[in-house]
């Protein structure tokens, strides 16, 4: 056997050993995360579908297999359709208010105003407050008799607008949507701010030399460079709105008369208040399907957009 052959055989042996070592390392390193994720997320999704094929209270062991009957019932359930409608209303309202307001707030943080530290600190505060605390606080802001909003309206002579904001079907959904936007606009503000910070100042200097106006600078420099983060924010906003729960649950519990019901609050109500675990599971699995379809659409759209560029 020649010397070079010997060496190559050796390297092969070393490589093989290395590869074995790699396999065990891969398994060992991924296992803890995979186990927890597998049990709590992946297993749970399958089990939700499984449970959704039963008529079952969840309290006793009496489970009756009903196939897809829960889903058929769901399609005929007016409250479920209301909740889907509200979810999509929330999606649209979030896109149309949170993102633009967040962008305006971010731009303000780069404008020549005095006391910037104050503005910057306060603007972001809503996002750090716990959703439950926000919900309770806004119950008192919207309160019908002495609520802060009505007091302010009274003080500026707009008594005619005073109403029980979250007690009435016609205004409740808008009142809670406004609160959701109050909470999340600051979040998009920081995403936009982080991107604007990264835009090189030279671009603006060059624009100044060309005599560009403020609006032109925004339209031709800032906005195009912000586009990727705007799209990311839109995705976050859509997915977040589809699974939204906390604030509505605290503020209205889906009422009055189901007018603020979301898929998540309705699912909670059916499952843990009415003890229809089977039916509740069919709602939660539908939420998964809807989130899945929307995500696939977003990803496909994103791919075509990237392909076009």
């Amino acid at each position: 056997m020649s010397r070079s052959q010997e060496i190559s055989l050796d390297t092969v042996r070393v490589r093989k050993k290395r590869k074995n070592k790699d396999t065990w390392a891969i398994i060992g390193f991924i296992a803890p995360a995979f186990l927890i994720y597998g049990v709590y997320v992946i297993y749970s999704i399958f089990m939700t579908f499984y449970y959704s094929t039963f008529s079952w209270t969840g309290i006793d062991a009496n489970m009756v297999f009903v196939g897809l009957e829960n889903y058929i019932r769901l399609l005929q359930d007016g409250v479920f359709w209301t909740s889907i409608q509200n979810n999509f209303l929330l999606v649209i309202a979030s896109l149309l208010t949170q993102l633009p307001v967040g962008l305006i707030m971010a731009l303000l943080l780069f404008s020549p105003i005095k006391g910037m530290r104050l503005f910057r600190s306060v603007y972001f505060m809503p996002f750090l407050m716990s959703t439950v605390a926000i919900g309770i606080l806004f119950i008192f802001i919207y309160e019908g008799n002495y609520g802060l909003l009505n007091t302010i309206l009274g003080a500026v002579g707009l008594e005619s607008l005073q109403t029980a904001w979250i007690g009435k079907e016609s205004t409740a959904i808008w009142a809670v949507i406004a609160t959701v936007c109050w909470q999340f606009a600051p979040f998009y503000m920081i995403l936009f701010r982080a991107t604007i910070v990264g835009i090189p100042e030279e671009l603006y200097e060059a624009a100044d030399i060309d005599g560009a106006s403020g609006w032109q600078r925004f339209k031709n420099i800032t906005l195009p460079l912000l586009m990727p983060i705007i799209i990311t924010s839109a995705i976050l906003s859509v997915i977040g709105s589809l699974k939204y729960f906390d604030l509505i649950y605290v503020m209205t519990g889906g009422g009055p008369n189901n007018s603020t019901e979301l898929m998540a609050t309705y699912m909670y109500k059916q499952t843990f208040t009415n003890f229809n675990m089977g039916y509740g599971s069919s709602i939660s699995f539908s939420m998964f399907i809807i989130a899945f379809i929307v995500t696939v659409f977003i990803l496909l759209g994103d791919r075509t957009r990237r392909g076009n560029e």
């Binding site: 709590y40 749970s44 999704i45 089990m47 939700t48 449970y51 997915i239 909670y268 499952t271 995500t295």
Partner: peptide, 24 residues
């Protein structure tokens, strides 16, 4: 595939796992 499997978790509504996690 494993990376994507983990990543998918970001779009999954917590409510979809609620009942099984409650029972578990």
């Amino acid at each position: 595939p494993i990376f994507i499997l983990f990543m998918v978790g970001m779009m999954i509504p917590i409510h979809t796992t609620l009942v099984p996690i409650f029972i578990l």
